[in-house]
Design a protein around this nucleic acid. Structure first.
Lengths: 204, 204
DNA sequence: CTCATTATTGACAACTTTCCCATTTTCTGG
DNA sequence: CCAGAAAATGGGAAAGTTGTCAATAATGAG
């Protein structure tokens, strides 16, 4: 997760971390083709390595899926970070809108994210961006609540459940906007401003 | 899922649904003994039916686990319903507290509930209790918001994420109380009253 | 070139899930 | 109440997956 392979060649002969990239790339292709029902057999065939090799890089099948989801979620977060949005409330609105729209557009991705919830140890980095955002918003007095566990849970839970609604096919047309508005409200942003920010973020 | 055996004898005599009960009962015993790592082989051996028979009743292993979790969650909900608590706000506080305390005390159960989130079609009946409660609270003017999707998601999400914190072992000692307080606040209950109700429910 | 280290392999055992067919159960019309 | 048809169920073998392991190959430092 956190430790990318950069320093691993400190002494040993780890040139073959290329295999990991092969597996991830193959995993991406198989996931696109077969959805959440991908098998290790598929991936190793696509990556042209043997079965046992897979388990040198991932403890089990789910860890690959998790890595793929995390990669794609992080690039989403990075894209928002690059926009240099000053106001934490607006940044929250934009980032959340992006995530929800991405989920709505790619249900396979949405299902993978949901499975991450039921998996131990994962999702840590995903919540990090949210937490940082809340910290900054609280520091600037933009939100009326600190980044305590309960606030984080409330907002993250709302996002998760909205994504779930997409996968179940029973999301209202304005589900994303409503969720963003609710999220802002939970953080202490006034109702009219929350409504405005949510609408703006959706309009981009 | 939703259709328990009740109406099946309305017309036809489906007596062989007894096998399903055998499997569920066996599943319950195996789950208690081996935790989430139960295998279909274990269950069919315990239920004394053959391997293939299992798949006449459940599409896969997870569906059995899901059915077991749902059953136990519903009995929790039914227990609260029997207490005839008048005030919807107080009923919400008690029910939510029960669920969270149960999750904290039985991490295997908690993990299974979390896995339900990532599974399609599940959790419908669980959300029903919550929805009914919110409907009544809104009708009585006890909550300031109707039982719309976003409200439901916000509250359900908070509960889910709090359960997740238990399984991850990083829940604050007062996580349950805080979650209940937050839930009530999200429904429009005033802060001081939410705090009081949450504390009362925890004290029982 | 040699050798310790590390990656890769393929076989395997344990499971899961599918398949097909014999039996049993349910339904229907005399 | 009774055939006999239609549908559901049970059984067990076959097919497919997962994760492990001992053996083998590849790699790069010295």
């Amino acid at each position: 997760m956190g430790s990318e392979g950069g320093e691993s060649r400190s002494r040993g002969h780890r040139k073959k971390e290329r295999t990991r990239r092969q597996l991830l790339a193959a995993g991406m292709r198989v996931l696109a083709a077969k959805g959440q029902g991908l098998t290790v057999s598929d991936v190793v065939a696509e990556a042209d390595v043997s079965n046992g090799t897979f388990y040198n890089y991932f403890v089990d099948r789910d860890e690959l899926v998790e890595a793929l989801a995390e990669h794609s979620a992080l690039s989403l977060a990075a894209a928002v970070a690059q926009e240099q949005i000053e106001d934490p409330a607006r940044r929250f609105a934009v980032a959340t809108t992006r995530v929800l729209e991405h989920a709505a557009a790619d249900l396979t991705w949405a299902r993978v994210i949901l499975r991450l919830v039921g998996r131990s140890g994962s999702g840590v980095d995903l919540a990090r961006y949210l937490r940082e955002n809340l910290e900054e918003g609280a520091a600037l007095g933009r939100f009326d609540t600190g980044p305590d566990d309960a606030t984080l849970d409330q907002v993250a839970g709302l996002i998760i459940m909205t994504i779930r609604r997409f996968t179940e096919g029973n999301a209202a047309p304005d589900a994303s906007v409503q969720a963003v508005r609710r999220g802002l409200r939970a953080l202490g942003v006034a109702d009219d401003e929350a409504t405005r920010l949510a609408a703006e973020a959706a309009a981009q």
